[in-house]
Design a protein around this nucleic acid. Structure first.
Lengths: 154, 154
DNA sequence: GTGGAGTTGTTCAAATTCGAACTATGTGGG
DNA sequence: CCCACATAGTTCGAATTTGAACAACTCCAC
């Protein structure tokens, strides 16, 4: 409590640049997905994760963890996606409490249709701006942040 | 439309790590500010920007631009902060349409009280995890992202 | 000056998010 | 077997965010 270690100029510049850019990027991605496919970024991530999962299905909790959204937030989004026929709910064979979110064929098609535009934006506004070395640094740094944040959340 | 340049493994790893970590970090920052001061991260950023501005005041539009929030979003947050006495609205002398958001003494005190805990989290979950070189890379990269995103938003 | 185009900030409805409370189910110790 | 405790998802209310529509004002060209 004696003294706070404030951010020096370099640190402050890094934090500010990170904050501003991450918000702008998120806004732009959200905007593109909404315009092109009527999807939230969260919804897109859900479809993408399911698509990559074995059997195109994942437990709700696991999915929420992966997408980084609250349990109730995931329930809400799965409701939306189910109403649009992009996802189905299925009971979990090994645990009666559990629910499996399953990607439907329509969901897979929607993802296929939407992915190119999404990837283009991600490239244009992030990936293609980085040298291979910078890309590697970003991966390393952000993995460290993930670890630290998950540890702090216990 | 012929072919999409998909993300290769390295690129995908970078994007995934970035996405996950940035969401987790945002969540944690939000949580800390809410618990310690009853503030949103957006609200904290507003107070911080005003505090650093000459005369502790900024035009609404300028502030919205800096904090990366929509005009209506800023109106809402300034309403909240005004009700708590942390910010005041003042007419702009040079432009009758304009509104100046002004940090009050109470607002400054609130910021002073809140800043140490906030900085601690930012350090713990980001800044202190980076080497000086990584810090510099993050700043450089994210500045580039900001430029690209703002350019794309015209 | 005057008209039209652009800016500024607010209002409004809709969508999304979260945490807390709740229901139902699994699990381990006695 | 049974109870206490932990886990899985949902429901609910509150807060926040956005874009579109709107009213008021500035500014420039004529």
């Amino acid at each position: 409590m004696t003294g706070t270690r404030w951010l020096d100029d370099r640190e402050m510049a890094a934090w500010k640049a990170y904050l501003t850019a991450s918000h702008l990027l998120e806004r732009r991605v959200e905007e593109q997905l909404k315009a092109d496919a009527g999807l939230t970024h969260a919804q897109y991530e859900i479809l993408a994760r399911l698509s990559a999962a074995p059997g195109r299905r994942l437990r709700m909790t696991e999915l929420a963890h992966g997408v980084v959204v609250s349990k109730s937030g995931l329930t809400y989004q799965i409701d939306r996606l189910e109403k649009r026929g992009l996802v189905e709910r299925s009971t979990c064979p090994s645990d009666d409490r559990g629910v499996l979110a399953v990607l439907t064929d329509r969901g897979a098609e929607c993802l296929e249709r939407t992915a190119p535009g999404h990837v283009a934006v991600v490239r244009e506004l992030l990936i293609d701006l980085l040298t291979p070395g910078e890309l590697e640094t970003v991966t390393r740094v952000m993995s460290r942040v993930e670890t630290a944040t998950r540890a702090a959340a216990r």
